[in-house]
Design a protein around this nucleic acid. Structure first.
Lengths: 156, 156
DNA sequence: AATAGTTGCTTGCGCAAGCAAGTATCTAGT
DNA sequence: ACTAGATACTTGCTTGCGCAAGCAACTATT
């Protein structure tokens, strides 16, 4: 569709060029490493949990009843089922979530946020947002953030 | 410049908002995971090496004399010195690089690309570019790639 | 030189993740 | 109802990485 971005009219070919995609990859990889490192560095001492746990709680908090099946959590978190099993086991030991048996399938397990988990998530969310804002918020021009996230949504 | 993504005109504030940065983070994390997985899936069987090795060879190939000190490689690759030591040891065993002693500092070691490494890198580069193009090239509009990489450069 | 402190690479250990195999449970076909 | 196969979570093994300690070599001071 007719989405036209900021192009010098004559100098840009009609097709996305190889070098452009390579540059996107390099920028993406670098930015991701940098953001992950900064977030982890802030989250662990200030929120008392690693980024990976925060992301679990984030997905759970967005879900119906604040719970998700283990396998569904694995899918949204982008890890394997065994990885989910172990990560959720740790979080259960830490009291942030609890196991709930699935009434319709006795093989299944729900991860459900405990009230302790909610409190911890709430604080962690504040830390997370502040870290994002402090480390990166000022670096992006007003409209840039929206453009970037719109473009990133196109990546499967 | 009249750059406009899909925004309601009056709804955009002058400042980058928290939610925007959060969306950038989520998009970035998702896109990075997706691209990494696709690249790894293509590289390992077709190029015969993991993405991590390709990136080492890429950095070396861009350097003066196709060689870098271990610690400098660690820096550009975004890993620790011990991580570099181990990764480069494996690549040395595989014959892609060789150790060269540094004439001005006998503690130092250069990683230098072997001719086997050059050949392997050349094939790997082809595979890499094709994978990028096949999986993601078509998803980005013509100017979008340039805009995104420009914006990503602002992230420290 | 001789010594103290620093730097560059290596190595022991632990953690987190993936794969593959194991166990319990479900589902379909008979 | 029975059985074969599929599915959901768990567990054993392996791998890759980071941290911290170690060793060798460098630099600065005496």
């Amino acid at each position: 569709m007719g989405l036209r971005a900021a192009n010098t009219i004559g100098a840009v070919k009609a097709k996305t060029r190889t070098a452009d995609v390579e540059q996107v990859w390099e920028g993406l990889a670098r930015a991701h490493a940098s953001m992950t490192a900064a977030l982890e560095r802030d989250m662990v001492p200030e929120a008392g949990m690693p980024l990976a746990w925060y992301e679990v709680l984030l997905h759970l908090s967005r879900s119906e009843g604040r719970m998700l099946r283990y396998q569904d959590l694995a899918k949204v978190a982008g890890i394997t089922n065994s990885g989910a099993s172990r990560r959720l086991e740790q979080m259960t030991k830490a009291g942030l979530i609890e196991r709930r048996s699935c009434p319709t399938d006795r093989r299944g397990v729900f991860a459900h946020v405990t009230s302790k988990g909610e409190t911890a998530f709430s604080r962690a969310h504040t830390v997370f947002v502040k870290s994002l804002e402090r480390n990166f918020g000022r670096r992006l021009q007003p409209g840039e953030a929206e453009m970037v996230s719109a473009a990133l949504k196109r990546i499967p």
